[in-house]
Amino acid sequence: MEEQGRLEATDSGWRFSFTCFGGPCEVTLDHAPRRLAQELGEEARCEALRIQSKFSRYAPSSELSRINRGAGKACEVDAETAGLLDLADTAHHLSEGAFDISAGVLGQLWDFRRSGEQVEGSEERRRSLLARVGWSRVDWRRPRLNLPARMELDLGGLGKEYAVDRCLALLATNHRGALLVNFGGDLAVHGTREGDQPWRVAVEEVDAGQPERMLHLREGALATSGDNRRFVYWHGKRVAHILDARTGLPPDKAPRSVTVAAPTCCEAGLLATLALLRGAAAGTFLEEQGRPHWIRNADE
């Protein structure tokens, strides 16, 4: 039996915690009766698990697996999947191909979990894997998707942020008080807290052991790309694990992490990822977007 959620009291309400998207998730509600907090927490947990399982690359019964199995012939997708594909398509064009949901296979070139270095013999593999990458070769005409044979899609870069926005919207319809949805550091808030107090949220620092960075947030969402668990060494420097889909390599002089504030978590997350893909120009890019941001650069 899977682990259930846990409800605990806070100074001003309740916090419901559970595990999803490979990490800790929590929903904080100000001024809610205990039962409502429990119910809404459960609802958020179910919705997060629904999105996780629908867009899982690994679960054979997921919608994404159905799409990937159908590579080589056209298939139809539902409205929710279509919305995510449209969003991915937008990000692909904005990044001139660097962001690509068909690039998941490139992850095989890097050992994220342990050393963060390129795996052996990866130069030949890189060329052969790149032949299976390229959103521009996918025929996407909503709602019909024609994924070329041997290609596969990975919505892992969007699912968690989308779940944050979805859960916030679901819960906001049933809760008048202030509300924070925080899935592993990607988060969004709703409503005004008592005395117009901001939410104080911790952004995980890239080096374990350093004090967390506290940010104050009154509205909108925050998302971070790059973190201390998944990184790669590139030209001797530890950089975020984001790979440029056109080369299979990390962008030149990529920061180690980027945190962006935006009206929605999906936007914040994508802007952070697109910024990382700009490498050294990450800061300039975010300035142009007019979004508040925090950049942590690679080791000296």
Partner: peptide, 26 residues
């Protein structure tokens, strides 16, 4: 901190904001 779509301003921010609104809006 202002997070309105109007004040975002950048091209990427506007395009992504629109796609996100379509995804979440309905």
């Amino acid at each position: 901190m202002q997070l309105n779509h109007e004040t975002g301003g950048g091209k990427a921010s506007r395009a992504i904001g629109k796609a996100v609104a379509a995804l979440l809006g309905g």
